[in-house]
Computed example of a mutant assay.
Amino acid sequence: MEIRLQKYLANAGIASRRKAEKYILEGKVKVNGKVITNLGTKINTEKDLVYFNDKKVCVKNKKVYILLNKPENYITTANDQFDRPTVMDLLPSISERVYPVGRLDYNTSGLLLLTNDGELTYKLTHPKHHISKTYIAKVKGIPDENSLNKLRKGIVIDGYKTSPAKIKLVRKFSENSEIEITIYEGRNRQVRKMCEAIGHPVLKLKRIAIGKIFLKDLPLGKYRYLTKEEISYLKKL
């Protein structure tokens, strides 16, 4: 069976397909002892030997799907050059090599999916699929309906107009408030920039759902495996 090299690396749990492409371009991948930098390269899964950073790559059949309630001050990568804690530190008992599906900022908490299913990761993170992500944002001040409507219709940040978002004012406090925001894009720090654009900067941010996968009452810093129904739902998106 022939398969593209980046897809094979993703299936083996090395990284997402796009990150695997980056590794190939950086010369970190060998096939039968030869460094490969061509993204169009296909391999024979029964005959060819693939190495990443000089370690043999093998595709394991067991797929793992994890939901983590990420705390603030954790990096959403496997390693950090500044030696900050990463989300992998919260999964000490997971023997399979998994990687995050997308990112959550260092100072953002909440729902993070991790898996070794490269195909699912590719689907969930590709911009064309527009999968909803829901956040609770504690913001400075109390935005009025006019400000919230700007977010609902789409607002210009970093030179582009965001897609229409679902917005709901959840709670009011004396000097700040909480709003529920559902977006269908995944641009860098998008929710924070949207709130900043209407004059109500984010004080705390938590992701509570991806599509119909909900964080619910999972304790902070803990994880659970997705149910069969949740996995089936994600694969059908």
Rank of each mutant, 00 (worst) to 15 (best):
T41S: 10
T41Y: 14
K42P: 05
I43R: 04
K47H: 12
D48T: 09
F52T: 06
F52Q: 04
N53Y: 12
D54A: 09
D54C: 09
K55A: 10
K55M: 11
K55D: 12
K56Q: 15
K56F: 11
C58Y: 15
C58I: 14
C58W: 10
V59P: 08
V59R: 12
K60D: 14
N61T: 12
N61V: 09
K62Q: 14
K62V: 13
K62S: 12
K63L: 10
K63C: 05
V64A: 05
Y65C: 01
Y65D: 02
I66C: 06
L67K: 13
L68R: 12
K70R: 06
P71D: 04
N73A: 13
N73I: 06
I75V: 15
T76R: 08
N79I: 09
D80A: 02
D83Q: 15
R84K: 05
R84H: 01
P85F: 02
P85G: 01
V87Q: 01
V87L: 01
V87F: 02
P92E: 01
P92I: 01
S93V: 13
S93E: 15
I94A: 04
V98I: 10
V98F: 11
V98K: 04
Y99C: 06
P100L: 10
P100I: 10
G102A: 13
G102Q: 11
D105K: 08
Y106M: 09
Y106P: 07
N107A: 13
N107I: 12
T108A: 09
S109K: 13
S109M: 11
T115F: 11
E119S: 09
L120W: 03
T121Y: 02
Y122R: 10
K123T: 07
L124V: 00
L124Q: 06
T125E: 09
H126Y: 08
P127M: 07
P127Q: 04
H130W: 04
S132W: 00
S132G: 01
I136F: 13
I136E: 02
A137D: 00
A137M: 03
K138L: 12
K140Y: 14
G141S: 02
I142N: 04
I142W: 01
P143V: 01
P143F: 00
E145L: 00
E145R: 00
E145P: 00
N146T: 13
N146E: 14
S147F: 01
K150N: 03
